[in-house]
Structure formats: C-alpha cells, structure tokens
C-alpha cells in the first residue's frame, strides 16, 4: 500500500514538473505539494525502505521498490528547486528550499547507507541508483547538487575497494563537472 502511495506521489510530482518545464511562463502555478511536506514524504520513503531485506536476497518487488524510492527522491529534489525558481521574487525561498531538501535527505540517507552496508551487492545496487540520481541532478544543472554531494558521496564509497572502473569513472565525471 505504501509503495502504491509512493508511486502515485511520484506521478503527481512528475506531472507538476512537466507542467513547469513546458509552461515556464504560466501565471498559474502547479505546485500540488508544499515544501513543508518534505519530512512526510521522507517518512513514506523510509516505510518502503524498511521492508528491504538485510540478509536474504531481495525479491524483484523489493528491488523495484528501491528504484521507486530513488526516483521519488530525485523528483522531490528537482521539484523543490523548480518551486524555488518559480518564486525567485521571494528572497527567502531559496533558503527554505535548501532546508526542505537537506532535511529530506538527512532523513533518508542513513537508510541508504544501512542498505548499502549489508553487502557488496547491496552497495552496488544502491550506488547504481544513486549515481543515476546524481547524474540526473547534474543534467538539469541543479544548484542543490553542490549541497547534497558531500553527504551522498559517503554512500558511494562504503565499499570503496570494490568499486568497478565504470562506477569510478562516473563518480569522477560528477566531481569534475560541478553545476
């Protein structure tokens, strides 16, 4: 049920972002979720992540739940930033946005660390999702990436010795091109 909520929430945020991207000069804002719901959204993500198994091999359902959580995290981060861009006339808006996003990530990041720490294969799976998320934020030139990177890079290096050359190259690419 929580995964269904999470999926629905992701589609709502995606719809809102599509509206913002396609109608940037629209006078009618399409911001269905206030930024102060950040912690509630993080809570929902955590409930889904709690079902992730520590010792046994994850089922396809659990693996897709993990992917779904990462997609929600990416969408929420981009959404917060776009809402801030829309409200650039309000001086404190950027600060509020940074706060909302950092609070969100400070809540979910420890669980990603925990899952990545279970084993090398768990770590690799988390790394693939996380790198894709970071690359996505870089692609949209997210200024929040600079704030988030120091926190999230620790997850990438949990199993530092076993990072594949491909992953190391992708991490380096992100470090080389700050937004």
């Amino acid at each position: 049920e929580c995964v269904a909520h999470l999926r629905l929430l992701s589609w709502i945020i995606l719809g809102s972002l599509n509206h913002m991207a396609m109608c940037p000069s629209s006078d009618v804002p399409c911001h269905p979720l206030p930024l102060d719901t950040s912690l509630q959204i993080a809570d929902l993500a955590l409930v889904v992540l709690e079902s992730y198994p520590e010792h046994t091999k994850a089922s396809v359902y659990q693996m897709s739940s993990l992917a779904q959580v990462f997609i929600l995290c990416q969408l929420w981060t981009i959404y917060c930033e776009q809402v801030a861009v829309f409200n650039t006339s309000h001086g404190d808006m950027y600060r509020t946005t940074c706060l909302a996003v950092m609070e969100f990530w400070m809540k979910v990041a420890p669980t990603f660390i925990q899952i990545a720490s279970y084993s090398k294969s768990h770590g690799e799976m988390v790394n693939l999702h996380l790198l894709s998320l970071l690359e996505g934020l870089q692609e949209v030139n997210s200024s929040l990436l600079v704030q988030l990177y120091p926190m999230l890079v620790t997850i990438l290096y949990i199993h530092e010795g076993s990072l594949s050359a491909g992953l190391q190259h992708r991490i380096q690419e992100i470090q080389n091109c700050p937004p």
């Binding site: 999926r7 913002m20 991207a21 396609m22 997609i71 990416q74 981009i78 996505g136």
Partner: peptide
C-alpha cells in the same frame, strides 16, 4: 528546460517500466 524535459522523460520511462513490473 530542454535538459529538464529530457530528464523527466527518462524518469517517466523508468516509472512506466516499474508500473509494468508491479502489475
């Protein structure tokens, strides 16, 4: 906005795949 739309399209594709998996 082009970059944002491209990124959203990719996420939409991934979400679509996950919907198929879950159904």
């Amino acid at each position: 906005n082009k970059a944002l739309l491209k990124c959203l399209q990719r996420l939409q594709y991934k979400m679509g795949q996950l919907e198929v998996q879950s159904s």
